[in-house]
Deep mutational scan, measured.
Amino acid sequence: TYYTVKSGDTANKIAAQYGVSVANLRSWNGISGDLIFVGQKLIVKKG
């Protein structure tokens, strides 16, 4: 599943929404920190 980042989103918020850990969200998308951008497409695997 892909999720498009919206204004006000955070890695924590997206992870919680899908029931996954922030560490997994980072791993699936090659993100090292919490910096995400509006319009960015993230791979999300439901927990």
Rank of each mutant, 00 (worst) to 15 (best):
T1H: 12
T1Q: 12
T1I: 14
Y2F: 11
Y3K: 00
Y3S: 00
Y3V: 07
Y3C: 06
Y3H: 13
Y3M: 05
T4C: 11
T4R: 07
T4H: 08
T4D: 05
V5E: 01
V5G: 03
V5C: 06
K6Y: 03
K6R: 11
K6E: 08
K6W: 03
S7T: 13
S7I: 14
S7Q: 14
S7G: 08
G8D: 06
G8W: 05
G8E: 06
G8Q: 05
G8I: 03
G8N: 06
D9C: 03
D9K: 01
D9T: 01
D9H: 02
T10L: 04
T10V: 04
T10G: 03
A11R: 02
A11M: 15
A11T: 15
A11D: 06
A11K: 03
A11S: 07
K13E: 10
K13R: 10
K13M: 12
I14Q: 01
I14P: 00
I14N: 00
I14V: 08
I14K: 00
A15T: 02
A15M: 03
A15I: 03
A16W: 10
A16L: 12
A16Y: 09
A16S: 10
Q17N: 09
Y18I: 07
Y18C: 10
Y18E: 06
G19C: 10
G19P: 00
G19A: 08
V20D: 01
V20N: 01
V20T: 08
V20C: 10
V20L: 10
V20A: 04
S21F: 05
V22L: 13
V22I: 12
V22T: 07
V22R: 04
V22Y: 04
V22G: 04
A23N: 09
A23F: 07
N24C: 15
N24M: 14
N24R: 09
N24F: 08
N24I: 11
L25R: 00
L25C: 03
L25E: 00
L25T: 00
L25W: 00
L25V: 04
R26C: 14
R26G: 06
R26S: 08
S27N: 11
S27V: 12
S27H: 12
W28Y: 04
W28H: 02
W28M: 06
N29R: 02
N29L: 03
N29S: 03
N29I: 02
G30H: 11
G30P: 06
I31A: 05
I31C: 09
I31V: 07
I31R: 03
S32P: 09
S32Q: 14
S32N: 12
S32C: 12
G33R: 06
D34S: 09
D34N: 11
D34Y: 08
L35C: 13
L35P: 08
L35I: 13
L35K: 13
L35Q: 14
I36M: 08
I36V: 11
I36D: 02
I36H: 02
I36L: 14
F37S: 09
F37H: 10
F37G: 06
F37P: 08
V38N: 05
V38T: 08
V38C: 07
V38Y: 05
V38S: 06
G39R: 03
G39A: 03
G39K: 03
G39N: 06
Q40P: 02
Q40E: 06
Q40A: 07
K41M: 12
K41H: 10
K41A: 08
K41T: 12
L42D: 00
L42M: 06
I43H: 06
I43P: 00
I43K: 07
I43N: 04
I43V: 10
I43F: 09
I43R: 08
V44A: 02
V44F: 05
V44P: 01
V44G: 01
V44L: 08
V44M: 05
V44Y: 03
K45F: 14
K45R: 13
K46P: 14
K46W: 15
K46V: 14
K46I: 14
K46L: 15
G47H: 12
G47C: 12
G47W: 12
G47N: 12
G47F: 13
G47D: 13
